[in-house]
Simulated scan of single mutants.
Amino acid sequence: MSRTCPTSGACSGSSRETSSCNTARCPYWSSWNSWSSCSQSCGSGTKTRTRTCSVTGACSGSSSRSSNCYTQISCPYWRSWSSWSSCSKSCGSGNKTRTRTCSVTGACSGSSSGSNNCNTQRCPYWRSWTSWGSCSKSCGSGTKTRTRTCSVTGACSGSSSGSSNCYTQISCPYWSSWSSWSSCSQSCGSGTKARTRTCSVTGACSGSTSRSNNFNTQRCPYWSSWSSWSSCSKSCGSGTKTRTRTCSVVGACSGSSSDSDDCNTQSCPYWSSWSSWSSCSQSCGSGTKTRTMTCSVTGACNGKLSS
């Protein structure tokens, strides 16, 4: 402890007095013990050693020490992971995997494969169907439709529309079966034959109540053109001339295959009556007398003009 002099430097004796205290030995570390075995049997590990304090917890510093240690054996080790595989799904949470190999088969701890979620976004999906539409028919059997939409346009499989049969309580007007064909209106030369049907409710069916069709379209038998007129059977005095034609189907044409007409109807040249005898050229001794006739067409009559 210390004291002070009222008059600095004038007092005898020391201003400080000391006395021993805490004579007990200070806490101290024991010697380090031997190093422990290496923590790894291969490759690089650590070894430790310890010491103890004479008064637990009273020594400064660490009670343990470690150091690297190395073996002459290379430890088994995992090689690098492979690249991730393709995702097992394109949407809706699939998996992708990767693998690795151990340098010494079976000696590495841990798994040789790893997996992870991928493409976790929701897949395109169909929204709810709309209500059914009205029936396409007001009577009989029709169809009704409904639709749905995809959350991603064009990405959903399946159809965006559906249909179903629908039935009303009303029977639709309907056509009866067609009647048999009528006889053809002509036996050749394109005639027609017809058939009819009736509607269960008069005037309510669409379409025609009758149908016709051409039949017997083959050409009817026909006469060829008339041939040229033949020569007249007489040169005068009313003769006849003829012409002919042929039927395309022998015996099938109506009418005659020949035709005739008058020709050269003018009178033939003719001699007039004889004139009276002339006087005798001699009064005796054998004379001659004559008489004459004339032709109606000069020079056209046969025979003598006189006798």
Rank of each mutant, 00 (worst) to 15 (best):
W32I: 02
K89W: 00
R211K: 15
T196E: 06
S141W: 09
V152P: 00
W175F: 04
S67L: 12
C268N: 05
T120Y: 08
S14T: 10
T7D: 12
A107H: 01
G207W: 02
T143C: 03
Y174A: 12
W132G: 10
T120S: 12
S177W: 04
T71W: 08
T298Q: 14
C172N: 01
Y70N: 11
S113Q: 13
Q266V: 10
S306Q: 08
Y77A: 14
T101Q: 10
T145R: 08
S208Y: 10
W229A: 08
T298P: 05
R98W: 06
Q266H: 14
S37V: 08
W274Q: 04
T198M: 09
V104T: 09
T292Y: 11
N68E: 13
G285L: 05
K89G: 00
V152K: 01
S257P: 01
S248W: 03
W32Q: 05
T217K: 15
S39A: 06
K304L: 15
S176I: 07
G189H: 08
S235L: 07
T242E: 11
C295E: 03
Y70V: 13
S276V: 08
G110T: 00
W226Q: 05
C268M: 06
G45Y: 13
S14F: 15
V104P: 10
S183Y: 12
M1I: 14
G239I: 00
Y28S: 15
G94L: 03
S2E: 13
S267E: 12
Q266T: 11
S257R: 05
S128T: 12
S164L: 09
Y270E: 09
T149I: 09
S200A: 06
S281L: 07
D261F: 08
S200M: 04
F215K: 15
G239C: 03
G43H: 03
P269K: 04
Q72C: 14
W274E: 01
R127Q: 15
W29R: 04
S115F: 04
R197K: 12
L305Q: 14
C220W: 10
S190L: 05
S228G: 11
Y125R: 14
S83P: 07
G191D: 04
N302Q: 15
C236T: 06
S83C: 05
G251K: 11
S138F: 10
S278V: 00
V201I: 12
N95C: 06
S15N: 14
Q218L: 11
S248T: 11
W81K: 02
Q266W: 13
G299F: 04
N22E: 13
N95Q: 15
S208M: 05
P269I: 01
T149Y: 01
C232G: 03
S224W: 10
T298N: 13
T120N: 06
S82Q: 04
R243S: 00
